[in-house]
């Protein structure tokens, strides 16, 4: 562990990675809203986050899978606009939370460094 990188920061970085990846999968679904035969995909967030936290040095490589139980249109497309819109907003908020926590952690370290200056 380095001086300025706390374990929490590392975990938060992994959290942000998985969140950003999921957001990418969601935007791919939205992009293919009208592609015949396209199946909506998603990652198991909890599972992928655990995997990313357990192996902190391995690259984040989640496995997007077809979402089961979605209504399929006659052209074979299973993207639901409501589901994706909701996930888009939710994932963005998750990302915002992660960034806010990371910033407060950095602030804490910066405070610890500057503590000495006042005296």
């Amino acid at each position: 562990m380095s001086l300025v990188e706390t374990p929490l920061m590392k975990s938060l970085a992994r959290y942000l990675d998985v969140t950003a990846y999921r957001q990418g999968v969601v935007s791919a679904n939205i992009a293919n809203l009208d592609t015949p035969g396209y199946r909506a995909r998603d990652i198991n967030f909890q599972q992928e986050l655990n995997k990313a936290l357990e192996a902190p040095d391995a690259p984040v490589a989640p496995r997007p899978q077809e979402v089961p139980g979605l209504l399929e249109r006659p052209d074979g497309n299973s993207v639901s606009m409501d589901r994706e819109g909701l996930l888009l907003a939710q994932t963005q908020l998750q990302f915002t939370t992660g960034v806010a926590l990371l910033r407060s952690e950095l602030k804490r370290i910066s405070m610890a460094i500057q503590e000495d200056k006042g005296q």
């Binding site: 935007s27 939205i30 809203l33 606009m81 963005q92 960034v99 990371l102 910033r103 950095l106």
Partner: peptide, 27 residues
Amino acid sequence: MGASRAYEMNISAITAAKQMIQQSIEI
């Protein structure tokens, strides 16, 4: 109408990505 709604939806996705990048910069 379908095309225009899908366009709007993708604009939302781009806005979300933009905000996420912006937030990362603000760290």
